[in-house]
Design a protein around this nucleic acid. Structure first.
Lengths: 237, 237
DNA sequence: GCAAAAAATATTGCATACGATTTTTGTGCA
DNA sequence: TGCACAAAAATCGTATGCAATATTTTTTGC
C-alpha cells in the first residue's frame, strides 16, 4: 500500500462521526426492507433509538435524503422513499447506461483475488435462494445487490462506485414496491455468467450480459400505475 | 404541465431551507473559481457571511461534501476540494461513460423549444469567448458547463441529471487545477456540432461527437504529478 | 349526531451553549 | 538563535431550548 492509499483509507475510516454509522444502519434497514416505503422517520425517534441528539439524527437523515432513500418534507419530517413508477424507470435507465460500462472497466482490472471474491459472493447468493421464508428472501435481495457493488468496486472508479451504491439501494426500494415474483434464480445464473465472462477477459460479452441482466430485472417489475399516481401522491400514500 | 409535475416542482421549490440557498451560492463560487481549491470554509465564517447560525452553515457544507466539492476533516473544518490527478481521471472516465448515453437520450426527446434554448446557450458561450479578462474566462467556463447541464435536463432523467451536475461541478475544479490553455473555442464549435446532430435526430453522431468532445477537454489537462502527490497532500496543499 | 372551529400536542427549523480537539501563540531554557 | 512545552485562541461535535408549523384531539354550535 502506497502513501496515497494510506492517507485515503485513514481519512475514510476517520470520516465524520456517528451520523455516518446511523446512516449506514438505516440504509441497510431500508435496503433489507425492514423499513417499508412510506415509514416515517422522525428525528426524535431516530435520535432516541440510537441514543444521540436530534442534531446527529438529522444529519443522518439528510444523508439518506441526498441518496434518494428518504424524502423530507418541510416541517413534516422524513419518510422512507416511495418511488413512483417514473422514478423506477429512471433508476433502471441509469443502470442500463452505467453498468455495462462498469462491467467493461472491471474486465480490464479484475484480479485472481477478485474472481475468488466473486465466487464467494455467488455462493452466498445460492445459499439464500435455496432457503425459504421472508428472511432468506431479504438476504437474497441484499446479496444480489452486493454482487453489483462488488463489480463496481473492482472497476476502480470511486465516483461511479458511489453512483452505483445509490442506484442499487434505490433499486431495492423499487423492487420492494413493484417486484412481481422471484426471477432471482435467473438473476443468480446471470451473475454466474457475468463472472465467467470476466474471468475470460471477454469485456464485450460481460457488457452484453450485464445489459440483458438489468433488462430482466426490470421486466419482472409491474410498473403500471395502480390507482393513479398523482392521486396516491396527493393522498400521502 | 401535469399534476405529477406540479407536485414535483412544488416540493422542489419548497425543498428545505436556507441551507440549500447557501449551498447553491457556495457551489457557484467554487465552480466560478472565486473560491480556489484548498480554501478553508469554516462553519462560523460561512454562518456570519450569510447571517445564519452554524447549524445551517454546517448543513450547507455537508451538502457540498456529498457532492465532492469540499472535503471535511474531523475537528479541522471544510476545505474546497483539491482533486488529485487520479480523481480527475475518474471524473472524466465517468463522463465518458455517461454523457454519450445522455446525448442519445436527449436526441429522442429534444423539442423545438429545446433547440432554441441550445441556440441561446451557444450564443452566450460565444459572447464570452470573444471577450478578454479573467471574468470573461470564468463566465466562459460556467457557460460551457451549463451546456452539458442543459443537455442532461433535456434527456429527462432526474437521477442522471443530478449525477451530471456533480460531474460538471467537479470538472470545473479539475480544469481550474490542471487546465493548460483554452481550447474553449474548440469546445464551443463542438457544442455547436452536437446541437446540429440533435436537431437532425442523429443520435449515433451526437453520441460520438460527445465522446470526442470529452476526450478533447481531458486532453487539455496536464495530469502529470507535479511535486509528488503524496507530499502535496501531506503538506495540506 | 355531525361538522366546523379551537385548543392541545407533537415535530421540525434554527440558534445558542458547552465540552473536546486542534492550532496558534507565547515563554523559558539551552 | 532555536527548540520544547505550556497556555490561549479558534474551531468543531453535540446537546438542548425556543419559536414556528403541522397534526390531532377536544369542544362547540347547529
Amino acid at each position: 500500500m502506497n502513501i496515497a492509499d494510506q492517507i485515503y483509507s485513514a481519512t475514510d475510516s476517520a470520516t465524520q462521526d456517528r451520523a455516518q454509522a446511523i446512516h449506514d444502519q438505516l440504509r441497510d434497514a431500508i435496503v433489507d426492507r425492514r423499513l417499508a416505503p412510506g415509514t416515517k422517520l422522525s428525528e426524535g425517534e431516530v435520535g432516541t433509538l440510537f441514543d444521540v441528539s436530534r442534531t446527529v439524527a438529522r444529519a443522518a437523515l439528510q444523508m439518506l435524503s441526498f441518496e434518494g432513500l428518504v424524502r423530507t418534507e418541510r416541517n413534516r419530517g422524513a419518510f422512507v422513499a416511495n418511488p413512483s413508477p417514473e422514478e423506477a424507470r429512471q433508476v433502471f435507465a441509469s443502470r442500463r447506461l452505467i453498468e455495462p460500462g462498469i462491467a467493461i472497466a472491471a474486465c480490464g482490472r479484475v484480479t485472481a483475488a477478485d474472481i475468488a471474491a466473486f465466487r464467494a459472493q455467488l455462493d452466498e447468493e445460492g445459499r439464500f435462494i435455496a432457503e425459504r421464508g421472508p428472511n432468506a428472501r431479504r438476504a437474497e435481495i441484499k446479496a444480489s445487490g452486493d454482487f453489483h457493488l462488488l463489480l463496481a468496486s473492482v472497476a476502480g472508479n470511486a465516483i461511479l462506485q458511489r453512483f452505483m451504491e445509490e442506484l442499487v439501494a434505490r433499486s431495492s426500494l423499487v423492487i420492494a414496491l413493484y417486484g412481481r415474483s422471484g426471477v432471482s434464480a435467473c438473476g443468480h445464473s446471470e451473475h454466474t455468467e457475468i463472472v465467467g465472462a470476466l474471468e475470460n477477459g471477454d469485456s464485450a460479452l460481460a457488457s452484453r450480459l450485464m445489459l440483458h441482466h438489468i433488462d430482466h430485472i426490470e421486466a419482472d417489475l409491474d410498473l403500471r400505475v395502480r390507482a393513479g399516481p398523482a392521486l396516491r401522491e396527493a393522498l400521502n400514500f
